[in-house]
Design a protein around this nucleic acid. Structure first.
Length: 423
RNA sequence: GCGUCGGUGGUAGAGUGGUCAAUUACAACAGACUGUAAAUCUGUCGCCUUAGGGCUACGAAGGUUCGAAUCCUUCCCGACGCA
């Protein structure tokens, strides 16, 4: 994997670049489509590609449970398995530590409102007896499968082994995504754990890369082995590994984490965590001011339009988010003047496309009335057409932002877009 | 004509003396969703309301009862059976 910066955004951390992977290039900043179970829900790869998507992200935990990482390996890797010829990434399962752990069965997720009382009273989250599907153990996490209840213990080593089997171009270290509602003491403890896991992820990754070649001293970290490992990620023998910065909403912890993860020899970085919306830009800025400029940064799981502007301005190169496809399937559609719920009564006889100047397949061929009809009828095509538009909308927005940096009018574009979008 | 069974909110369909403005499902309406436990979930769903309550309702009209969607009488309507 090779990353080149083409242009920087003046007086900020933002930049435009190109990321070369064994399966093709990614022009950054870029929006990564989420394909958790080796499929971008409701879309076939051709539709994903036509929406302008450059790279797809699968999930370690989900693919390990089903169909099993060895099946994906034997199929020729995640890309070949799912018939996606472009670049691929896999998340480590670290997010499931959170979503199936403390967040399980609760009304907390990736983004929390800062007014949420749970943020003000961290003690309320001392509910270790609450049912959850993920529990953090001594050196890993035990998961109770949501599919059949079976227990699986995932360590950093295991996550990396699975990801090597899945065979994506870019993989992530195993981390713990924490809730912003956790108190400082827990954030510190979790961060220490994530850092230890980062080292172990990297060590396992090196070991696996070297085992692909003829190197004999697999456990020795020397210049020759490191050089070989780097070469492997370029040739496609093995994936590139991104380390993940955590640290919650605390400035000192975020910076400490960025410094630590930076000190390890990762190919790039992920910025993780469950944020209060208001905290996100500062957290990203703290981190990206520290991370080495020459390596790519991925803001994990973030993707509302206003977040994309924020992230790019603050030096983020890659985003992934379930929103375009999940919202699409659930009937919410992005437009330049905000999100609409297409099943609403007012669209039932609206025979215009979602956006008349949109170039996506959905807008070029269908009316709002028809899509509203499909949702009311619970037809499968409803989610597909809405996902196509939403994915195109978000992917294309990032492309436009990229172009605006190249054209030296990022801030004008940002103001103009957000003024209309946020009403 | 006689007999039997039935008529419940937009629909289907529970309820068969008080806890019933009426279970439930569907439809309808509104909303939520940020490294996917998610083609999922939440709320509203007779009318009025200063949200305490008030009013009108289970085919229609009477009646029994402290109290009726629930029991009785007559009528109307539907299905089936016998003539």
């Amino acid at each position: 994997m090779i990353f080149k910066i083409e242009k920087k955004l003046e007086n900020s951390l933002g930049r435009v670049g190109v990321l070369e992977t064994p399966h093709g290039i990614i022009e950054t900043p870029a929006f990564v489509a989420v394909g958790t179970k080796a499929t971008v829900k409701s879309l076939n790869p051709e539709q994903v590609k036509d929406a302008g998507v450059q790279v797809v992200l699968g999930n370690t935990y989900h693919l390990y449970l089903q169909p099993g990482d060895e099946i994906v390996r034997d199929a020729g890797g995640i890309g070949k398995f799912m018939n996606w010829s472009g670049p691929t990434m896999t998340d480590s399962g670290g997010f499931q530590v959170f979503s199936l752990g403390v967040a399980y069965g609760k009304d907390i997720s990736k983004i929390t409102k800062i007014t949420d009382p749970s943020l003000l009273i961290p003690e309320r989250f001392d509910d270790s007896d609450a049912p959850r599907l993920a529990k953090i153990g001594q050196d890993g996490v035990s998961f109770k499968s949501h599919l059949d209840g079976s227990i699986h213990y995932i360590t950093p080593e295991k996550s990396i082994q699975i990801q090597h089997n899945l065979g994506a171009d870019i993989i992530f270290a195993f981390d713990e995504c924490t809730s912003p509602a956790e108190d400082l003491r827990y954030q510190e403890e979790a961060l220490e754990r994530t850092h230890r896991w980062a080292e172990r992820s990297l060590a396992e990754h090196r070991k696996l890369l070297l085992s692909h070649g003829s190197h004999t001293n697999l456990n020795v970290v020397n210049e020759s082995n490191i050089a070989y490992a780097e070469e492997s990620t370029i040739s496609g023998v093995g994936p590139a590994l991104f380390g993940i910065v955590q640290g919650g909403r605390e400035e000192s912890l975020r910076k400490k984490s960025a410094e630590f993860i930076k000190s390890l020899d990762f190919d790039g970085f992920g910025i993780g965590g469950s944020f209060a919306k208001e905290d996100m830009s500062t957290a990203v800025k703290w981190v990206n001011e520290i991370l080495p400029e020459e390596k790519p940064r991925h803001l994990l799981g973030i993707g509302e339009p206003e977040d994309l502007f924020m992230g790019i301005e603050n030096g983020v190169d890659l985003f992934d988010c379930v929103l375009p496809t999940r919202l699409g399937r659930n009937g919410t559609i992005y437009t330049k003047s905000g999100k609409i719920i297409i099943s609403n009564t007012k669209f039932r006889n609206d025979f215009m496309p979602i956006e008349k100047d949109c170039e996506c397949y959905t807008c070029k061929n269908y009316t709002k009335a028809y899509i509203a009809h499909l949702f009311h009828g619970k037809e499968m095509l409803a989610g597909t057409l809405a996902s196509i538009h939403n994915l195109y909308f978000i992917v294309n927005l990032v492309k436009k932002i990229r172009q605006s940096i190249l054209d030296d009018n990022f801030f004008e574009f940002k103001n103009e877009f957000l003024e209309t979008y946020l009403k």
